[in-house]
Design a protein around this nucleic acid. Structure first.
Lengths: 219, 219
DNA sequence: GAAAAACTGTCGGCCAGCCGACGGACCTCG
DNA sequence: CGAGGTCCGTCGGCTGGCCGACAGTTTTTC
């Protein structure tokens, strides 16, 4: 087995991974559309994304629910009953969980990293449960947009936020547990109301972040 | 600080906890109804239940969603945004997560235990997400009952299953993300149809486990 | 043992939003 | 640059189930 090395031009988020953490991992290139994991898989693996994007999702009969999009620097473990698909060509570093358990035993510095990874996955899962159980789709969408604005957005003059978001309407609907018709309808209504504006599929301008916050927090 | 010891008559599931795992934990007795944790809590703790029962739940405006009922032997960590309430008088063993992190660093044998705990919580959370997103209440209830029958039930003669279940209708509804009216209506319909029978609030007799399995798996 | 509290069963109005369908717009590929 | 593929916008029928209300039953407390 040939041991690959991270390329020097790797994504900064991936380069922040402590080098010793990658010891024992093996690089794999996944073509776009590749279904990397399914719920019935018996092999559990730990994976770290170097480049590209993976979508983790659950499948219903007529639609899918995306739990997350994994990006460079993200760590994930596939023991949950989910599908994992490469949205674009993606390079990941993999280790079977059995081998990873040995790594944990021999290198205690890895433990806090993994506890944080699992903890974050758990918090995200609980937040999604809360959304699905208690919030209607408009509130979910508003919360999603305000959360992304706070994480990825850039404030411009006059209280306007620029939000680069490489997600289509169907992607957003999938993350919220809704349908593209419902999300499309809401986005267009909010555009007509002057709350936001869509520019192509990659950029939102948010004119009324406060209004979105209010929409995300029903009284 | 007085160090308590587990009583000799403790629940077998609790007594299966490795003794060294309890090192550093402190016993607390929580009265019935005690709200032990809320989403805003800044203190994150690891807890192990010796006796009693805790309910972990999310709160909406008009109802609650119970994520789980914790019982003797269960380990939980409160860093997710949930409420934790003592359903009956409950004795738990507690440690702050900061101290627990030091324990993990100094005693690597604890790591696999905690990885399994977090992993199980994650799998349960993902299963609930799948239910909420894709399954209607009858399917959720059927899956709940068949799952509990397989875990806690006892087969009797003639294909009948005895399922001791110390949960009221409202408890079951809360676990499924539904309302007591909906669950009550379904249980009574299934009783009229001869699929099951409720005996008091603590015991189900399941006459048609196959039918329940089918109801839990929509085509 | 009675009163109070808690839980359950039932009913029906109401509505959020899913989903199939269709046409248009945009993007990709050859 | 055109064809094909993919995505988006809109529409409206339909339905699952929430929830307020009320009465009855069971359990708990004193």
């Amino acid at each position: 087995m040939e041991l690959d090395l991270p390329s020097a031009s790797a994504d900064p988020a991936f380069r922040r991974i402590p080098p010793h953490l990658l010891d024992g991992f093996v690089a794999h290139d996944l073509p776009r559309g590749c279904l990397f994991a399914t719920p019935g898989d018996l092999r559990n693996q730990v994976l770290i994304i170097e480049s590209g994007r993976l979508r983790v999702y659950l499948a219903g009969e007529n639609r899918e629910l995306s739990l997350s999009f994994l990006e460079p620097g993200d760590i994930y473990t596939t023991h949950t009953p989910t599908y994992v698909e490469a949205v674009v060509t993606t390079r990941v570093w993999l280790m079977e969980t059995v081998a990873f358990a040995r790594k944990l035993a021999s290198d205690p510095s890895v433990t806090p990293v993994m506890m944080r990874v699992l903890g974050r996955l758990l918090v995200n899962a609980v937040n999604l449960i809360e959304d699905l159980a208690f919030r209607e789709v408009p509130a979910r969408l508003a919360r999603f947009l305000t959360g992304m604005a706070e994480r990825r957005g850039r404030p411009l003059d006059g209280g306007i936020w620029l939000l680069p978001l490489d997600l289509g309407t169907e992607d957003i609907a999938s993350l919220l547990g809704s349908t593209r018709q419902t999300v499309s309808s809401l986005l267009n209504q909010w555009e007509r109301e002057g709350i936001l504006q869509r520019q192509g599929r990659r950029v939102f301008y948010i004119y009324q972040l406060d209004t979105l916050r209010r929409l995300g927090t029903p009284i």
